[in-house]
């Protein structure tokens, strides 16, 4: 996918119901209650946090392009796609941002340093400037390399074969695979900067960055499925067991020990609204969440009915029809719908 297509895909989902800046926060991976519940409401799991360093100016440039090509209504504060914007076909994507949570970067940092080290040793160069400066990564790679006996040429060959086979299987285009390998360095071969890659392929640097993330997510899926012995341990700590944010996890464990929402807020010295965000997150990830602790089943049904009738996920519109339900209850009920899907 190109960057503009990612923006368009998100806009298609939230059309008329969210502001122009909401896709930006989602792509950056902002961990606010609003962003996280939107993922569930609108099924935006693929795009969460895929470009954490996205600059606002790059995002606004994409918005301007979508407007000038007639996909997006101009000047509106809310996202409003044109008929054309809805019709334009979007490619499928291997992106899986909600699952990998930016950890593909840790995976690639490990891979980069392993490949550089092997490349240098294969060619008799035992001292070199490491391409990754993060000490935690350096220590991890050191341990890993010793464990696999990386000086053994059989191991080195096998490592390359597994890497090659991972990329062959990865659900991505070959120009995208070119990019990820251009970001690797070796003995006397430097990695290429985003600008160099973009220049060579006559694309925007941001599209090059996105292509790299797509290849990585596709590759991680391949590794999980095929479990190649040398590469599988690179996933250590990369695949998150729980889909919850750290803070929501702490709220969950207190909740399971019988504390109420109020008590949790006091214990953790956080605002009640923050704890409410956590519950919405819990509900979103757990189809069996006991919402009856927070509202009657009739209220729950009413919220869903109203949402369907009005064809909206906008809290304010639902609240107007159902003044007796609180905003928290509406958010919780809508989150459950996402989880049920």
């Amino acid at each position: 996918m190109r960057f503009d297509e990612v923006v368009l895909a998100i806009m298609k989902a939230v059309d008329g119901q969210r502001t122009i800046s909401s896709p930006y926060h989602l792509i950056k991976g902002k961990k606010s209650g609003q962003t996280i519940q939107d993922i569930g409401y609108f099924n935006l799991h693929p795009f969460f946090g895929v470009l954490p360093k996205l600059e606002k100016s790059d995002y606004l440039a994409a918005v301007a392009r979508l407007q000038s090509t007639g996909m997006l209504e101009p000047e509106a504060e809310q996202v409003r796609l044109t008929a054309r914007g809805f019709e334009v076909p979007l490619p499928t994507t291997p992106l899986n941002g909600w699952k990998y949570r930016g950890n593909e970067r840790r995976f690639f940092a490990r891979l980069s340093l392993i490949v550089q080290t092997m490349s240098c040793f294969i060619q008799g160069q035992n001292r070199f400037d490491p391409v990754v400066s993060d000490e935690a990564i350096q220590n991890w790679v050191k341990t890993y390399l010793h464990r696999i006996h990386f000086r053994d040429s059989v191991v080195q060959h096998e490592f390359r074969m597994q890497l090659e086979s991972m990329l062959e299987r990865a659900d991505a285009a070959s120009w995208q695979k070119d990019i990820i390998i251009e970001r690797l360095s070796g003995f006397n071969i430097g990695g290429l900067t985003w600008d160099q890659i973009a220049n060579r392929g006559k694309i925007f640097p941001i599209d090059a960055q996105l292509a790299a993330v797509e290849v990585l997510h596709a590759s991680l899926a391949v590794l999980e499925e095929h479990q190649p012995p040398l590469l599988i341990s690179l996933l250590e700590g990369v695949i998150q067991q729980s889909a919850l944010t750290e803070s929501a996890k702490r709220t969950q464990s207190l909740f399971e020990r019988g504390f109420s929402l109020q008590q949790i807020a006091e214990l953790r010295q956080l605002k009640t609204s923050t704890i409410e965000d956590h519950f919405v997150e819990l509900a979103m990830n757990d189809p069996a969440f006991l919402y009856t602790l927070f509202m009657d089943a009739t209220v729950y049904e009413m919220i869903h009915k109203t949402s369907e009738e009005l064809k909206t996920m906008r809290l304010r519109d639902i609240k107007q029809q159902l003044p007796e339900a609180s905003y928290f209850q509406i958010r919780l009920a809508l989150a459950m719908r996402g989880a049920g899907k």
């Binding site: 490949v115 092997m118 490349s119 294969i122 060619q123 040429s153 080195q156 060959h157 490592f159 390359r160 890497l163 090659e164 990329l167 070959s174 695979k177 070119d178 990820i180 390998i181 251009e182 690797l184 360095s185 070796g186 003995f187 071969i189 060579r200």
Partner: peptide
Amino acid sequence: SAPSWQERLKAILPI
């Protein structure tokens, strides 16, 4: 012309 990913990978890990 720029090498394909397979070619570049072989250049980096010539084994």
